[in-house]
């Protein structure tokens, strides 16, 4: 299969549309909002299904535990708020009320990563993948684009148990075709290559795709593997790809500590010791800036990823 980039919908928009669509046929679907529905696009759901849109106000700890209680009655709550206030502020509520009880709650906030509409450091959450994958019983999904996000959201309604889906505020490139499906676990090979393997996740994957094309022009043959499921991680998929090339890079628009970089390093050091270079945000708090400027400064545009990989290879 060959892939091309095109303009995609913002994943928050996909959230609003997909939960609305799910609720048409599934009476169990409800949305809990922490007073930001107009930002997360939960308001799309609110217009069509007002009785199943539960405004919880600016009180996220209560909201996550209420979701656990709702789930015990057979309903499927989806959480609408900013990622920072859905996975960090109520982390203990997720641990005790949701993860330990295996509650059928879908944690689907927008605004993961750096693109938070110039809100600044307090709203920029980079370690969501690390925090969520540290919780036993939690499924962690990081879709690459609007097509995969819609598929993952639809899948989540059929899965019984807690799920975190990483969603991004702003429009990013689409890489997957119309009707692309989601299955829990397997990595998704995007481009073949023989010199190195690049593992990428979330909406960084379309940018990583641009990077491997640039690298091809510079004579570096890079295999690109998208990792949509961070937990449970696809051990065999990661080991097999790394075995074919040796030398591995991970790229993510998030914290490399505990994120995809951490997960891949754990897998490979245990099963197939391989040199891994982790690209992403490394032990920093990121502040406001335009999306283009943030990607440039932190080395995550297609161009900058290609440059970073090339110079790392030159250094040996």
């Amino acid at each position: 299969m060959s892939y091309e980039l095109s303009k995609g919908l913002a994943l928050r928009e996909v959230f609003g549309r997909t939960v609305t669509e799910l609720a048409e046929t599934d009476q169990r679907v409800v949305v809990l909002d922490g007073d930001v529905g107009s930002s997360t696009k939960g308001d799309i759901f609110e217009k069509i299904h007002p009785a199943r849109y539960l405004q919880m106000g600016i009180a996220e700890q209560n909201m996550l535990s209420v979701a656990a209680g709702l789930a015990t009655t057979g309903l499927i709550p989806y959480i609408s708020t900013f990622t920072a206030f859905a996975v960090v502020r109520p982390l203990d509520q997720i641990r005790v009320s949701i993860a330990q009880t295996r509650a059928n709650v879908k944690i689907t906030p927008s605004y993961a990563g750096m693109f938070t509409g110039s809100t600044g450091m307090s709203h920029i959450i980079l370690d969501d993948l690390g925090l969520m994958r540290g919780l036993p019983n939690m499924v962690v999904i990081a879709p690459a684009d609007d097509m995969e996000a819609a598929a993952a959201l639809r899948w989540s309604a059929q899965y019984e148990g807690p799920v975190y889906i990483r969603l991004i505020r702003d429009a990013t490139d689409r890489i997957f075709p119309e009707g692309f499906g989601f299955s829990l676990g397997p990595v998704v090979p995007i481009a073949d290559g023989s010199d190195i393997t690049v593992f990428s996740t979330s909406t960084q994957t379309p940018r990583s795709f641009a990077a491997v094309r640039i690298l091809a022009g510079r004579g570096i043959s890079a295999k690109l593997v998208h990792v949509p499921t961070i937990k449970p991680i696809d051990v065999a998929g990661i080991v097999n790809a790394a075995a074919e090339t040796g030398r591995v890079f991970t790229v993510e628009e998030g914290a490399v500590v505990g994120g995809l970089g951490g997960a891949v390093a754990e897998v490979l050091s245990e099963h197939l010791p391989t040199r891994v270079t982790r690209l992403g945000l490394d032990d920093v708090y990121v502040a406001s800036g335009s999306n283009a400027a943030l990607l440039d400064v932190y080395g995550l545009s297609g161009q900058r990823v290609a440059d970073q990989i090339e110079s790392a290879l030159l250094r040996g």
Partner: peptide, 10 residues
Amino acid sequence: ISAAMGMALG
């Protein structure tokens, strides 16, 4: 208490 509220809402 919050979980119980969720049950009542349910």
